[in-house]
Design a binder for these strands. Sequence first.
RNA 1: GGGCGCGUAGCUCAGUGGGAGAGCGCUCCCCUCACACGGGAGAGGUCGCUGGUUCGAGCCCAGCCGCGCCCACCA
Length: 838
Amino acid sequence: PPAEGTPDENYSIAIPPPNVTGALHMGHALNGTMQDALARMNRMQGHNTLWILGTDHAGIATQAVVERELREDGTSRQELGRERFVERVWEWKQKYGSTIVGQYKRLGASCDYERERFTLDGDYVRAVYRVFVALYDKGYVYRDNYIVNWDPGTHSAISDLEVENREVEDTLYLVDYPVEGSDEVVTVATVRPETMLADTAVAVHPDDDRYRHLVGGACTLPLVGRRLAVIVDEHVDPEFGTGALKITPGHDPNDFEIGRAHGLEEVTVIGEDGRMTEAAGERFAGLTVAEAHDAVVAALEEEGRIRDRRPYVHSVPFSHRSGERIEPLISLQWFCRMDELAAPAIEVVERDEVRITPAQWKRVYLDWMRNIRPWCISRQLWWGHRIPVWYCDKCDETYVAETPPERCGACGGQLRQEEDVLDTWFSSALWPFATLGWPDDTPELRAFYPTDFLTTAREILFLWVARMIMMGLEFPGQIPFRDVYVHSVIQAPDGRRMSKSLGTGIDPLDEIEAYGADALRFGLLAMSSSQDVPYSKDRVQQGLDLANKMWNASRLILLNVDAGSDSAVPAGTARSARRSRAFVEDRWILSRLQRAIEAVTADLESYDFAHAALELYRFFWSEMCDWYLEIVKPRLYDSEPEASATLLHMLEQVLALAHPMLPFVTEEIYSYLRDVAPERRAGMVVVHRFPEPHAWLVDESAEAEVGAAIELTRSLRRWRELAGVAPRTVLAARAQDTEPPELVGRLARVAFDGDAAGAESLAQVGPVEILASGDIDPEQVRHRVDERRQALCAEVERAQRKLDNEGFTANAPADVVEAEREKLAAYRAELEDLGEST
RNA sequence: GGGCGCGUAGCUCAGUGGGAGAGCGCUCCCCUCACACGGGAGAGGUCGCUGGUUCGAGCCCAGCCGCGCCCACCA
């Protein structure tokens, strides 16, 4: 699309960039379908529409894939060295990185494929560096020794959000620490005895009388002999264990906080390689954590320090990336302070400038943002945005800049760039504006930022969405999008998570192969909801059925229509069209169409995709096909011009209405429709005007009249079943007062012929009197009618009781009472009718 | 520990105060000239449980039972 107009007039979506390593999964398929439905609708509504496409370099994931390849080749990234490794990843990216883009095409996603973005493109890197430097200059970004979630699997620090807590069965050891200068011991509880080697204090609660006499004194750390001060701290829970807490600032996040508060020494006994360090002492240095665990227990056992051991279930952090148990370590990392960035991002959501749907996620977002903590943004990886910080070889000088000077300004020394790269989410946070050319003031940015819509899985609400809002406000200075829609998670059919490792995944491409892209799209929209839903092949089948039905209905219309009448009769949307239409069924279906257009549009605009899909299905199948097409057939076969004109108009409107959800079949059918009258229908549906409901085509009296005919037809069919009359048998009947429409006779297979004047009357169905004829068993009819009469009596009694209740008549709204009276009257009328037949 | 959500027909789900709906499945009938990926007619729910509010509750309130998710530093 041209970069013209304003963001208010235009419509834009930035796709949640899939990982370059990724293949399309159900989440993408659902997410992509929703975005595409909105993009297509808005495009058809005449908005200049941009759907930005691109991929994410996905630091850890991509590095892992290439490292696996290297391992298969018998080498490693270390052997290759950084530069060649990064080259190798780029090669991999060029070769496989766009797989998923092709898969989006198969889904029918109408993205801007001409402008595919990548988070490591030159311009994008420039944006990332600009942001990092700016945040550093503001003092938000800093480097510090701090306890981080160390992932031994990826050999990198990871952020709090990439940690997943799991319930684990462990052993809780109660260990005696001798009190200095007495025979007493203090017993502490731990599930990780190996970390005791790094203990630097013992803490108790300030109000705990049991330990009051020890406060200010010290214990001796078994195996090590270090002197541990006994301190008080509010964080200690006197109820847990013995009420005495060993403090290990180097290997426990809580203890770290306590340690910093009390100025305790920070001892590190576990290294980044997951092995015990020199500081663990000769006996343990070099052991793995697991080995050290056993060795420490054995040693304590030997000294008689273990008082007790108990089975203990607790939650333990694991890496979301590698699946390995997180090792909390003190490490020199880059952090970003979030409080200042969060404040305006809280406000825009509070004020609904960024709307979050469904609404309950607004509070979840706000709660998290109000308690936001510093973000560890450095990663010990090679694939990613290498942090734009340079250190001097010779002096302490540090340069934080988009481009560094040649040499150190202070001493002329060589500069060496920071080894770490940025958390992938740091760059993703800039996605909605970096893809539009920021930091330059580009036409694209002016035309399409802020974007309109973002759909996301709730698991990345904090990881990504919140950060985009913060960065959008901080840098371009505007919200990144107006609406955030948190979609449901499609689970495996059995309700478990869809996952590769569980073998529960269903590949959307297989489903497209089996059912077609339109069917999958329809199915996903129809099954989506605000809550998680199991994947349902039945819904996808329903989509296939709908596409098939459209195809067949179109065949009926296009093969029988009189093309000339298309232009001879006023189009359906013309104001004159309603008056000029002689047939009530035409006015009826046009009227029903207006309501369907209104409903589908409103559903899509409020992101109620399931209802949009199901309403389209209902209208097209039940009203258009089951009733209108059946009603209009004889006129169609007779080449009656208004039938043709109405059908062509209906088809055109329905195709346009359905197109955002079912792009392929509608485009295909439209190409045939276009051939019927090329002078009136140029182009493709994708750029067709999206249908708008017209008040002047809503015709209540036509709706009432055809509605009554439909009801009568159904009543007659029901009576036929009741009486056990074969479907092909034409019932003899007489219309009592009013002349029923020809169409009721045809649809219900009833012949209103005067010849039957002398025949016995069998039943009264509405205004129609059914007459005896040779094919009907009167005994069976009587029996079934008796049953119906009993049911009606019960209804009459119920309604009567309700209306006799003064509480009801006095307090219920008048129209409700009136409706009840009408119902009662209807039951009585039917009962009376039945009475005549026996 | 806190928060959010869910429990409605055999299955998957709609339904936020006036006599329970859809799709699939099931039963019966029909290959009627667009479609058997079809058409017609049906059966099938004490709306998790217990109280409460109301003339009236699937819907509002309280409590309970069961399930799921998110957040959280009790070793």
